[in-house]
Amino acid sequence: MMCEDVEVKELTWEEKRTLDKIIGSLEDPKHDKLRLLQLVQNEYLSLRDEHMRYVADKIGTSYTDLYGIATFYSLFNLNPPGRHTISVCMGTGCHVKGAQRIMKKLEKVLGIKVNGTTKDQRFSLKSVRCLGCCGLAPVIMVDDQTFGRVRTGQIEGILEDFE
């Protein structure tokens, strides 16, 4: 199954134990793959190749199957994100109210493009489809804190609180 030129990292016992525990916590891990991957990601912040291979083996499915799911849903990321994730809402309400400007300002302030992570691993920048706060557009979310009616001038101030 594995291609030869792909270098697969060995898992530590610690990692194996954690993954086993996650698998064990689910009633029907073979069908509850979304939940499973979410739990793995919550644990390790991203879905690493070696973890997915191990989990796939354990629940009796293929790595490609899990990889296919991981790349299909936008919530999963294959690369580790920064310590804080900034999500800029690009919903219609926000779009009409200038979410693009907010995004550009963030890109400038952080010096990265959307879907990037700053060098110091402090921030990752993402665009999300709609946070459901259209009444307060434009909206950004840093980790799980939502900020409404954001103006470009406030961006730096908001980011200061996240180290």
């Binding site: 690009m90 459901g132 706060c133 259209c134």
Partner: peptide, 11 residues
């Protein structure tokens, strides 16, 4: 799975 941007009644 309220995905429509601009709609949030389900939430």
């Amino acid at each position: 799975d309220e995905g429509d941007p601009g709609a949030y009644m389900d939430r």
